[in-house]
């Protein structure tokens, strides 16, 4: 369900590191919880983000969820196709519906993020709480 090679946050973002570039999105679990995504708000290219800084939001019909950057870095690209097709977040959250690409400031931060297994355990415990 959640790709092994990705790293995850407790706010349900994933990051895929490719050299110095990180691609960020929200998880399958998150999109399922949110339901039909109707709008995605993304930052401007060039914006510098701190780790876990809010950089935008995704909206369903009756909820807004902030998006947090898993690592510090500079936004190098945003997925402009989501503007006209926010439904992609529901259809392909781990692939085509990536949100932003960032130039990773400190690759060591990746190690502090959750692995796929740890993330799976986290969401199970979250579900159990409800």
């Amino acid at each position: 369900m959640h790709p092994k090679e990705y790293r995850y946050t407790k706010e349900h973002e994933w990051i895929k590191a490719d050299g110095a570039t990180g691609t960020v999105g929200i998880t399958h679990y998150a999109q399922e919880k949110l339901g039909d995504i109707v709008f995605v708000e993304l930052p401007a290219v060039g914006r510098k983000l701190e780790a876990m800084e809010s950089f935008g939001s995704v909206e369903s019909v009756k909820a807004v969820s902030d998006l947090y950057s898993p690592v510090a870095g500079e936004v190098t690209e945003v997925n402009s196709s989501l503007k006209d097709n926010p439904a992609l977040v529901n259809q392909d959250p781990h692939g085509g519906a990536w949100l932003v690409k960032v130039k990773i400031a400190n690759p060591k931060e990746l190690d502090q993020l959750l692995t796929a297994d740890a993330y799976q355990k986290f969401i199970e415990s979250e579900a159990a709480e409800q």
């Binding site: 709008f39 009756k62 909820a63 807004v64």
Partner: peptide, 12 residues
């Protein structure tokens, strides 16, 4: 477009 509104945004 209710997500712009108070009852959803609350403190935001």
């Amino acid at each position: 477009l209710a997500t712009r509104e108070q009852h959803i945004r609350r403190a935001k």
